[in-house]
Amino acid sequence: MNRLIKAASKVEVDPEAMEKLLVNRSDFLHALENDIKPAFGTSGEVLEHFLARGIINWGTPVSSILEDGMLFIQQARATDTSGLVSVLLEGPPNSGKTALAAQLAKNSDFPFVKVCTPEEMVGFTESAKCLQIRKVFDDAYRSQLSCILVDNIERLLDYGSIGPRYSNLTLQALLVLLKKEPPKGRKLLILCTSSRRQVLEDMEMLSAFTAVVHVPNLSQPDHLMAVLEESDVFTKKDLSALSRKIHGHRVFIGIKKLLALIDMARQTEEPYRVIKFLSKLEEEGGLDMGSSIQ
């Protein structure tokens, strides 16, 4: 419609507007690029947001999760299976569960990949939330190969530790959908993340999953050094000093929290970078200088 407006001292319709009213190919391309959100396809922007820092392979636990993830993808693709594979990635907060789930979803290369997050449903009533989740699954059933990523599942359930309380309506809806096999000829891979394994076990949700995969925190000095070496924040001299400082001491920190501390160290002047990083690491409980690994 912008073509119908004539630029002048005042807004007026172009007298030749009738000739310009024809819709051409460039209008469709502009609409596809800027206006239309596809109901099907992949949630590329959301996955890229989750993978903004990439996947840092800091040790055997990460390698094992990615290898097992490929087996789950192959299982979902296989023609001689039920067509439904649901996997729960559980672990402590900030351990990188969402990023790993997003990487597995991306690795699947399925034509339909959708992400279901609590952020999309802020302010929804229980009924509206159930309808939205149901719509995601219904859309997935229409594709031959589909992957759904359900992030932070306890937040979808409105779980609160004070009380505790949760949405039983949403819980029952998820239990049904997690166990429901897709139509004949359709394959569905469901990836869920949670920081509250015990809560889901109390809700009898764990039995609804094909597999439960634990995503651990970094727990060895070698794990920590692998991330620091890949960050390009510290010099070789700094890395040597850090390796000596943390050698033999207990380490326990999530990758997400560690990356935040590294970002803070990046803003620190170079001579004080190592000292600042170690002090913050201790404050966050990620490093215990008072105890050593036996």
Results as ranks from 00 to 15, higher is better:
residue 114 K to V: 04
residue 213 V to M: 08
residue 66 L to V: 03
residue 69 G to N: 01
residue 126 E to D: 15
residue 164 P to G: 05
residue 137 F to I: 11
residue 189 L to E: 04
residue 262 I to V: 06
residue 141 Y to E: 12
residue 227 V to E: 04
residue 147 C to D: 02
residue 247 H to Q: 08
residue 184 K to C: 09
residue 60 T to L: 11
residue 202 D to Q: 13
residue 162 I to V: 13
residue 113 V to D: 14
residue 18 M to T: 02
residue 284 E to M: 12
residue 239 L to Q: 02
residue 22 L to T: 13
residue 116 C to Q: 14
residue 69 G to V: 04
residue 6 K to P: 10
residue 250 R to N: 11
residue 237 K to T: 06
residue 45 E to S: 09
residue 45 E to R: 14
residue 187 K to T: 07
residue 182 P to M: 06
residue 262 I to T: 00
residue 274 V to G: 00
residue 144 Q to I: 01
residue 101 A to Y: 00
residue 252 F to P: 00
residue 141 Y to P: 10
residue 268 T to C: 03
residue 227 V to M: 03
residue 181 E to I: 09
residue 128 A to K: 15
residue 241 A to Y: 02
residue 106 K to D: 13
residue 285 G to N: 09
residue 24 N to M: 14
residue 7 A to E: 14
residue 59 G to F: 10
residue 170 T to V: 14
residue 243 S to G: 06
residue 76 A to M: 06
residue 228 L to E: 07
residue 276 K to S: 05
residue 204 E to K: 06
residue 87 V to D: 05
residue 272 Y to Q: 07
residue 57 N to S: 13
residue 85 V to L: 08
residue 135 K to T: 09
residue 242 L to T: 03
residue 112 F to T: 05
residue 2 N to H: 12
residue 250 R to T: 10
residue 6 K to V: 12
residue 45 E to C: 05
residue 64 S to A: 09
residue 21 L to N: 01
residue 238 D to C: 00
residue 113 V to H: 02
residue 257 K to T: 15
residue 231 S to L: 03
residue 88 L to G: 12
residue 210 T to A: 07
residue 26 S to N: 06
residue 66 L to D: 00
residue 3 R to G: 04
residue 71 L to D: 15
residue 111 P to F: 09
residue 82 S to T: 01
residue 108 S to H: 13
residue 15 P to D: 04
residue 235 T to A: 12
residue 161 S to K: 12
residue 7 A to W: 12
residue 242 L to Y: 08
residue 8 A to L: 10
residue 230 E to R: 04
residue 87 V to A: 10
residue 141 Y to S: 12
residue 180 K to S: 09
residue 253 I to Q: 07
residue 31 A to Y: 03
residue 78 A to I: 06
residue 24 N to F: 14
residue 26 S to E: 12
residue 113 V to K: 08
residue 261 L to K: 00
residue 71 L to G: 11
residue 126 E to H: 13
residue 218 L to I: 08
residue 211 A to K: 08
residue 188 L to H: 00
residue 274 V to S: 05
residue 184 K to F: 07
residue 225 M to H: 01
residue 83 G to T: 13
residue 154 E to W: 11
residue 126 E to N: 15
residue 11 V to I: 15
residue 104 L to W: 04
residue 207 S to L: 13
residue 27 D to M: 09
residue 185 G to H: 00
residue 214 H to I: 09
residue 83 G to M: 05
residue 151 D to C: 02
residue 266 R to K: 14
residue 115 V to D: 03
residue 248 G to Y: 00
residue 165 R to E: 07
residue 34 N to G: 08
residue 127 S to Q: 15
residue 163 G to C: 08
residue 124 F to E: 02
residue 139 D to E: 11
residue 91 G to N: 05
residue 19 E to C: 03
residue 115 V to G: 02
residue 199 V to P: 02
